[in-house]
Simulated assay, not measured.
Amino acid sequence: MEKKLGTGEPNSIQDWFRQRNGPLYAGNFPWCDATITWAAVDSGNYNEVCFGIDWAYTVAHAARFDLAGQWTPMTKGVQGTGIRRGDIVFFDWNHSSAIAAIDHVGLVTGVSGDAVMTIEGNTANVCARRVRYAADIAGFGRPKYKTPPVKTLPAVSLAHVLAAQKADTAGAQGSALHRTEGRLLENALKAKGLLAARWVDGSLGSKTEDAYSEWQKAYSAKHNLGWTGTDVNGKAGMTSLKALGAETGLFRVVA
């Protein structure tokens, strides 16, 4: 929906809808629900928001939510109904909660007290953000959005890192006691711009230790932590290792 903010008319949403649904939608037709349909398709939520149907008629769209048992009339106020971000909100400018009286539709982007923040197509002939209140809201449909899979980050063991820092530094060039975890650590330092790609080989030798030290100093300064001495000597600790993993999003830390 944010991609279309500021869109006037006639516009690409109308063209897109007409190409999919034919000359019945010629000219400058009302496009508020066509905007919801476009956004649903573009975001990969077509079935969840539109039930596999392109909508231009808001009454029919709301009725489809009702048929699916996913409709809540605005009869208990904003707080009482629990309207929330992601809901498809339908409006009746004559202040009823009747589906047959619906005039307009938008997407809820947030709720603050009794105010409902939205993005709407075809509001004063543009796509814009609005703040709405219960009196104008007939009700809302709640799509059954897909739950995104939880991303499990690869694990880096602090004990393995410490052992590798000791063994790899003392061993031959390129020695790697725990190469897979070493690469994860080195890729994080590379992402911070502190380690050249040619040293990302899983061997936690002096180059990696120097880069880790530079990261410790930079992180301490950024967050006013006052790390000194052994806190910034390039040796891993649970606090710093977790911080590096969290800051780069490349690994999680286990003992």
Rank of each mutant, 00 (worst) to 15 (best):
F65W: 01
K76V: 09
G27R: 08
Y46A: 09
V78C: 04
H61R: 08
I88L: 08
A68Q: 13
Y46S: 07
D87Y: 06
I88W: 01
D42H: 06
D42W: 06
A60S: 15
F90W: 10
D42R: 10
R85T: 12
G82Q: 12
A39C: 15
A68R: 11
V78P: 01
N94C: 08
I53D: 05
F29S: 10
V49D: 06
T37L: 02
V41M: 11
Q79F: 10
T75G: 05
K76N: 15
L67S: 14
D87Q: 03
A39Y: 12
G44K: 05
W55H: 05
V59D: 13
I36T: 08
F65I: 04
T75H: 06
D42M: 09
G52F: 04
G52W: 01
D92E: 03
D54F: 09
Q70R: 15
Y46V: 02
Q79I: 14
P30K: 07
T72N: 11
W71F: 06
G77W: 02
G86F: 01
D42K: 10
D87R: 02
F91A: 07
G27M: 05
D66K: 15
V89Q: 03
A56P: 06
Q79G: 15
A39F: 14
H61N: 11
T37W: 00
W71C: 01
I88A: 03
D92S: 11
R85A: 13
G27N: 08
G44Y: 02
D42A: 15
T81R: 00
K76E: 15
H95S: 13
P73A: 12
T72I: 12
I36H: 01
D54H: 14
T58P: 05
W71N: 01
A34K: 01
T75V: 13
W38I: 00
R64P: 05
G86S: 04
T35K: 04
W55A: 01
D87C: 10
G27V: 09
